[in-house]
Design a protein around this nucleic acid. Sequence first.
DNA 1: CGTAGGAGCTGCCGCTGCGGAAGCTTCAAG
DNA 2: CTTGAAGCTTCCGCAGCGGCAGCTCCTACG
Lengths: 253, 253
Amino acid sequence: MAWPIAEVARMSGVTARTLRHYDEIGLLPPAWIGSNSHRYYEERQLLQLQQILVLRALGVGLAEIARIIGDQVDELESLRSHHRRLVVERDRLDALATTVSRTIADLERSRKDGTPMTSINRPENLFEGIQPADVDASLRDFPEHAEATRRATAAMTPAEIEAGQRERTARMVRLAELMAAGHPADAEPVQHMIDEEYQLLSGLRTVAVADYLAIARSCTDNEQWSAAYEAIAAGLAGYQRAAMEAYAAARLS
Amino acid sequence: MAWPIAEVARMSGVTARTLRHYDEIGLLPPAWIGSNSHRYYEERQLLQLQQILVLRALGVGLAEIARIIGDQVDELESLRSHHRRLVVERDRLDALATTVSRTIADLERSRKDGTPMTSINRPENLFEGIQPADVDASLRDFPEHAEATRRATAAMTPAEIEAGQRERTARMVRLAELMAAGHPADAEPVQHMIDEEYQLLSGLRTVAVADYLAIARSCTDNEQWSAAYEAIAAGLAGYQRAAMEAYAAARLS
DNA sequence: CGTAGGAGCTGCCGCTGCGGAAGCTTCAAG
DNA sequence: CTTGAAGCTTCCGCAGCGGCAGCTCCTACG
């Protein structure tokens, strides 16, 4: 008992184009191919198609589905990791929605009052503030770490160093957005970012709590650093310091 | 005061590639282009870039950002609609995560007990159940609506009719998934789907509450219909009927 | 017996938002 | 004079198909 492609399409609710696509990527080849090169599917293929559709409805990617079908991985295990991804993505959207609604409220307020909004990233300041050199220059305040850092950066390609710099800048901008959105320094999304930073930092060098707090102080006290932060948004240096101190108090023994 | 592309990249935290891309799609052309065809950006462009990055961080698509920048639409209004999209997507992921975790629990249980799971979509039944003809045949039960429906379908192209059939099938499969996931018939996700169905139906023909309830009864009482439902999953016909009746009770005056 | 229509096929372009790399020019420094 | 850095354009790739063009093949109808 074999069915042509259009029949299968009608039965399963997907288009024939999709079935051809699944054949093309090797996810679901037909049972056999007629002399006129028409695709014919049998029960086994339909069963697999149903499994594919269920997993797809659960948001699992086709590549992942292919691995599950091929029995190379455990369905339960893969569903569990997929669930984790779903929850993370949901939380991200949730935080995003919160930020957006706060932005909307701010905009409405500033339209009514004429109050200007917190301005992020005046670029002329950005230009003055974030010179690549100042990251290195700031190391002078931590001579005992300079050596470790130098060794770490020496092992990196220029491209990696570039990328690191970009990421630091982007991170500061994101932090400024959170600040502008009205999150207090100890709010969850902020602390989540600070945690990421801490993980990166502790990957680079061993960092004691006292050292970490010293770095936090430098955000406002070190001229180069605070200039870089303030160039992005007024008050950002103090905000970063407060966030780091809250992080140390809450999560570092 | 003009900055070359790499400088802007370092300042803003995006790559030069991204800036070129934004130029390419017309989102952010540079202030001017040098005789060596190098791109140079000035303050105005940097300010726009910051606006772009903020909106992008809020998850707004580049096309939408372009319209906002071009002042063709109101930023507030567009943010509001974006917020709605975000919430919808978040809720979708939330429901998905719930379903996945339920699926995981079911799988774990059936592995321990050897209890079989609710089976969706045995395809051989699907084949018997969902013949395109039966949708038309079922109209015999509603002669007073047959004419209206015939007129509506006559105005559609064959491709649209095809698509409609596929969508109905896909909808039934989704409903079966919700049922298998353990949602009661009056649960929110189920009722949401039923509402979509109702909107589609009332777009096709005027439908009174009594008629709607008659249709609900047909799900189990009409042989063709119930066969189609049961072919997808055991108990689906009764589930659909219960969901429709709950919908009528809750939302139709 | 010719032809029209319908169902199938292959193959290519399009969407989003870039990343990555090849292969070229141009400019300043050693 | 040569090297290196920085810029450029152009193309391929990613997920998951949708939608077209242009071909073949089979059946039914006049």
